[in-house]
Design a protein around this nucleic acid. Structure first.
Length: 310
DNA sequence: AATTCGGGGTT
DNA sequence: AACCCAGAATT
């Protein structure tokens, strides 16, 4: 059942750290190609610490949750100052971008320390195993399940134990229609025993999706595109480059439609229309960017998708 | 304790 | 179309 994953070939804490951060709220299949590229470009802590942020973000562009990349960068610099990768839970946990889960994962996998890692998979597996109907997002429930995880933890092999628990959640003990017939611990599963496996875990509160639409403009001239770098006022995606929307260029002349795509962010779903447009002069805040240099810049995913339509 | 942060595959 | 992913930081 053990899936061959690129970060399982190493005991290098740096690589395990990078993989764990990439896997925060991100599926394994999505993270793999990013991990390969990232570790090739930044093979160790030092190379990451010294990298320009724009290069880092360009490498992360499309993976989402960009504060992960910025925190990874800051932490790399802290680790260099510390003189090496921290080797106990408390120090690992203190690094920016590392919470309880990631600290436990690194401590157990890279250093063999007895800390149970509690991610979405493990919460699901254990809520079923113990037939716990508490809200999985409530602190009380998490503490109860965390205590159970610590009790079950194989203290001689915590890294394998943690990964096996997550593997079980990712493969058999899935959110819907768990494959209990194939599950090695089904005889111990209290939810299965009373037929509640499909009702667990209980998770309350989820905002409903908001649908919006807008138009992105591709303004091309002499092999360049009109782009803008998001500044500190834009709130999110600061430092990323993007194409203008219609509100940015009220005076632009519209050209033909290039295409459409959907783009989802959190509980927002955007329907984006892409059109060609032209302007008389470069509007304030925008710059002409050569088409050849685009891939070296961190582009917003929406802009990336728009350009891909060409 | 509740929100926010990206994006995309699954069901 | 809802759900949820090898979560963390901020409010």
């Amino acid at each position: 059942m053990r899936r061959p994953l690129p970060w399982r070939d190493t005991s290098d804490p740096y690589r395990i750290w990078v993989s764990e951060v990439m896997l925060q709220q991100t599926r394994v299949v999505a993270a793999v190609p990013y991990y390969e590229r990232f570790t090739k470009r930044f093979p160790d802590v030092k190379s990451l610490a010294e990298a320009p942020e724009q290069e880092l973000l360009a490498c992360w562009s499309g993976l989402g949750y960009y504060s992960r990349a910025r925190n990874l960068h800051r932490s790399a610099q802290i680790i260099v100052e510390m003189g090496g990768f921290p080797e106990n839970f408390k120090k690992i946990r203190s690094l920016p971008g590392i919470g309880d889960y990631t600290a436990a994962a690194i401590a157990s996998i890279a250093f063999g320390l007895p800390h149970a890692a509690l991610d979405g998979n493990v919460l699901r597996v254990l809520s079923r195993l113990s037939n716990d109907a508490g809200d999985i997002r409530a602190r009380e429930t998490r503490e109860r399940i965390s205590a159970l995880a610590s009790r079950l933890l194989d203290r001689k092999n915590p890294g394998d134990f943690n990964q096996a628990m997550m593997e079980l959640g990712a493969t058999l003990c899935s959110p819907k229609r768990p494959q209990c017939l194939l599950c090695p611990v089904s005889p111990e599963c209290e939810a299965l025993a009373v037929g509640r496996q499909n009702q667990l875990p209980v998770k309350l509160r989820s905002a409903q999706t908001v649908r919006l639409e807008y138009t992105l403009l591709l303004v091309r001239r002499n092999g360049c595109f009109l782009l803008r770098q998001r500044n500190a006022d834009s709130g999110n995606l600061v430092g990323f480059w993007e194409a203008p929307c219609t509100a940015d260029l009220p005076a632009a002349r519209m050209g033909r439609e290039v295409g459409r795509f959907k783009h989802s962010i959190m509980h927002h779903e955007y329907r984006v229309t892409v059109r060609f447009a032209s302007v008389v002069k470069c509007p304030p805040g925008f710059r002409w960017i050569g088409a050849g240099t685009l891939e070296q810049l961190p582009l917003t995913t929406a802009t990336k998708k728009a350009l891909k339509l060409l």
